[in-house]
Lab assay of single mutants.
Amino acid sequence: VAKRKCPDHGLDLSTYCQEDRQLICVLCPVIGAHQGHQLSTLDEA
């Protein structure tokens, strides 16, 4: 199974943004649109 990539940063989608209910990469909460959002690992989601 191919991993999905972040459209903004090109990295694997490895984190779940609880606020926006979507998968994001590790850079999205650091330099992207998900700064300050509640996050979960994929195992927790």
Score class of each variant (00 low, 15 high):
Val1Gln: 05
Val1Phe: 04
Val1Asn: 07
Val1Ser: 11
Ala2Ser: 14
Ala2Trp: 05
Ala2Tyr: 11
Ala2Cys: 14
Lys3Cys: 03
Lys3Val: 08
Lys3Leu: 07
Lys3Arg: 08
Arg4Phe: 10
Arg4Lys: 13
Arg4Cys: 04
Lys5Gln: 05
Lys5Asn: 06
Lys5Cys: 05
Cys6Tyr: 00
Cys6Ala: 00
Pro7Glu: 03
Pro7Trp: 04
Pro7Asp: 03
Asp8Ala: 13
Asp8Phe: 10
Asp8Asn: 09
Asp8Arg: 10
Asp8Leu: 15
His9Cys: 07
His9Arg: 00
His9Trp: 00
Gly10Glu: 08
Gly10Trp: 03
Gly10Lys: 07
Gly10Gln: 11
Leu11Cys: 12
Leu11His: 14
Leu11Gln: 11
Asp12Cys: 03
Asp12Asn: 08
Asp12Tyr: 06
Ser14Val: 13
Ser14Tyr: 13
Ser14Leu: 10
Ser14Lys: 13
Ser14Gln: 12
Thr15Phe: 03
Thr15Tyr: 12
Tyr16Thr: 14
Tyr16Asp: 04
Tyr16Phe: 08
Tyr16Arg: 09
Tyr16Pro: 03
Tyr16Gln: 11
Tyr16Trp: 10
Cys17Pro: 01
Cys17His: 01
Cys17Asp: 02
Glu19Tyr: 07
Glu19Asn: 10
Glu19Ile: 08
Glu19Gln: 08
Glu19Ser: 09
Glu19Thr: 12
Asp20His: 05
Asp20Glu: 10
Arg21Tyr: 12
Gln22Phe: 03
Gln22Pro: 01
Gln22Arg: 12
Gln22Glu: 15
Gln22Leu: 08
Gln22Ala: 11
Ile24Lys: 06
Ile24Arg: 05
Ile24Leu: 08
Ile24Cys: 09
Ile24Ala: 06
Cys25Asn: 01
Cys25Arg: 01
Cys25Phe: 00
Cys25Gln: 02
Val26His: 11
Val26Ser: 15
Leu27Phe: 06
Leu27Met: 14
Leu27Pro: 02
Cys28Ile: 00
Cys28Asp: 02
Cys28Glu: 01
Cys28Phe: 01
Pro29Val: 06
Pro29Gln: 08
Pro29Asp: 08
Val30Lys: 15
Val30Ala: 11
Val30Leu: 08
Val30Met: 12
Val30Pro: 03
Ile31Leu: 11
Ile31His: 14
Ile31Ala: 13
Ile31Gln: 14
Ile31Met: 13
Ile31Tyr: 08
Ile31Gly: 12
Gly32Glu: 03
Ala33Cys: 09
Ala33Ile: 10
His34Asp: 02
His34Ala: 02
His34Ile: 01
His34Tyr: 02
Gln35Pro: 03
Gln35Ser: 08
Gly36Phe: 04
His37Asn: 02
His37Asp: 02
His37Cys: 09
Gln38Trp: 04
Gln38Val: 08
Leu39Thr: 13
Leu39Arg: 11
Leu39Val: 11
Leu39Ile: 11
Leu39Ser: 11
Ser40Leu: 07
Ser40Glu: 11
Ser40Asn: 06
Thr41Glu: 13
Thr41Trp: 06
Leu42Ser: 14
Leu42Met: 12
Asp43Thr: 10
Asp43Arg: 08
Asp43Trp: 04
Glu44Asn: 11
Ala45Thr: 13
Ala45Asp: 12
Ala45Cys: 09
Ala45Gly: 14
